[in-house]
Design a protein around this nucleic acid. Structure first.
Length: 223
DNA sequence: GGGTGATCATAC
DNA sequence: GTATGATCACCC
């Protein structure tokens, strides 16, 4: 198999991504010498990691963009046969402590979403994983309106967290950005702010983009 | 049937 | 536990 070198510039990344359009996951996996799982129950991040590898993203667990030198975050997104997202999109872990002075502009959500390369992949469960095809990639930068929606949701959520009301937040808060559990299981705990300002224990949370929002992004191109 | 809350694998 | 990659699956 060929070694994958990180793309040197944005056009090189886009060129590689465009070449994957129409290809099945099995073809990519074979090319990489990887076995295709029968389902994603125990391999939930498999598609994302496969695409990352093929595009030459630097493997790592750093809270940064996948292509830091290009300022690009890579997201695979499962779609139905109409091109509509089947799942919400995870963005990053939500900070629950030490958030005094944190603003939208210097938040991790804002930073990660400045520029995203969306790679749609057929995601309907009746399609065998290996037979699922990759779609046309979309390079997206939030326009002022999208930016404003994200910022508004982020600020509302973070204010409640700062007030010690994280337990009152559900996935129903937010128009485009929502807060949901993000952990190995519901027993996982982390520190958060209590209503009296002290620390308490809570389930870790993450920020997710709602499917109605990502559908709009995809529709701007395919609509 | 869709969305919310829960969960899976893995590296460190 | 926290971070990466997300999808599962139950309840409404």
């Amino acid at each position: 198999m060929k070694p994958i070198i990180p793309p040197q510039n944005l056009s090189e990344l886009l060129e590689r991504a465009n070449m994957m359009a129409g290809i099945s996951l099995a073809q990519i996996a074979t090319h990489r010498g990887i076995n295709v799982p029968n389902n994603l129950k125990r391999n939930k991040g498999w598609i994302g990691q496969l695409i990352e590898m093929e595009l030459g993203a630097t493997a790592g667990s750093k809270p940064e963009q996948d292509f830091l030198h290009l300022g690009v975050e890579l997201k695979t997104i499962p779609i139905d046969n109409h091109g509509k997202p089947l799942e919400t999109t995870y963005v990053c872990v939500a900070p629950l402590t030490n958030i005094e002075g944190l603003t939208w502009q210097n938040s991790l959500v804002c930073h990660k979403l400045q520029r995203v390369l969306w790679v749609p992949v057929e995601g309907e469960r009746h399609i065998p994983v290996g037979a699922r095809r990759i779609g046309t990639p979309i390079l997206w930068e939030p326009d002022p309106q999208e930016q404003a929606l994200l910022q508004q949701d982020w600020e509302e959520i973070m204010e409640l967290i700062a007030l010690g009301k994280v337990e009152k937040l559900t996935a129903r808060h937010g128009e485009v950005l929502q807060l949901r559990p993000k952990a190995a299981n519901s027993k996982a705990m982390t520190h958060s702010i209590a209503e009296d300002g002290s620390l308490k224990m809570t389930n870790p949370r993450g920020f997710y983009l709602k499917t109605s929002f990502t559908a709009m992004i995809l529709n701007k191109v395919f609509g």
